[in-house]
Computed example of a mutant assay.
Amino acid sequence: MNRMLMRGLGLAAAIAPIAILATSAGAQFAGGYRYQTGQDLYTHICQGCHMPDGKGATGAGAYPALAGNPKLQSPLYPVLVMLKGQKAMPSFSELSDAQIVEVTGYIRTKLGNNFPGAVTAEQVKALRAQAVRQNALRPG
Rank of each mutant, 00 (worst) to 15 (best):
M1S: 15
N2V: 15
N2R: 15
R7H: 14
G8R: 14
L11A: 13
A12V: 09
A13V: 03
P17L: 00
P17Q: 03
P17C: 01
I18N: 13
A19N: 09
A19C: 08
I20F: 06
I20A: 09
I20K: 11
L21K: 15
A22Y: 06
T23L: 12
A25P: 07
F29T: 12
A30T: 08
G31H: 10
G31V: 12
G32I: 00
G32D: 06
Y33L: 08
Y33A: 11
Y33E: 01
Y33S: 11
R34Q: 13
T37P: 01
Q39T: 06
Q39Y: 12
D40H: 11
D40N: 15
L41G: 00
T43L: 05
H44P: 02
H44C: 01
H44W: 07
I45F: 04
C46H: 03
C46E: 10
Q47M: 08
C49D: 06
C49G: 02
H50A: 04
M51T: 10
P52A: 11
P52K: 13
D53V: 10
G56T: 06
G59P: 02
G59H: 10
A60T: 07
A60C: 11
G61I: 13
A62H: 15
Y63V: 02
P64F: 09
A65K: 00
A67H: 09
G68H: 09
N69V: 03
N69Q: 11
K71G: 11
L72F: 02
L72I: 08
Q73I: 12
P75H: 13
L76Q: 14
Y77W: 06
P78I: 04
V79E: 12
V79A: 03
L80E: 14
V81W: 04
V81I: 14
L83R: 00
L83D: 01
K84G: 15
G85W: 00
G85N: 09
G85D: 10
M89N: 07
M89F: 04
P90K: 05
F92R: 02
F92P: 01
S93K: 06
S93Y: 11
E94V: 03
E94I: 01
E94D: 14
L95F: 05
L95D: 00
S96N: 09
A98V: 07
V101S: 06
E102W: 09
T104Y: 04
T104V: 11
T104R: 01
G105N: 12
I107H: 02
R108V: 02
K110P: 10
K110M: 15
L111C: 07
G112H: 05
G112T: 05
F115A: 08
G117Y: 08
T120G: 05
A121M: 05
E122N: 11
Q123I: 03
A126P: 04
L127H: 01
L127R: 00
Q134C: 07
Q134E: 11
N135V: 15
N135C: 14
L137D: 09
R138G: 04
R138C: 05
P139Q: 09
G140L: 10
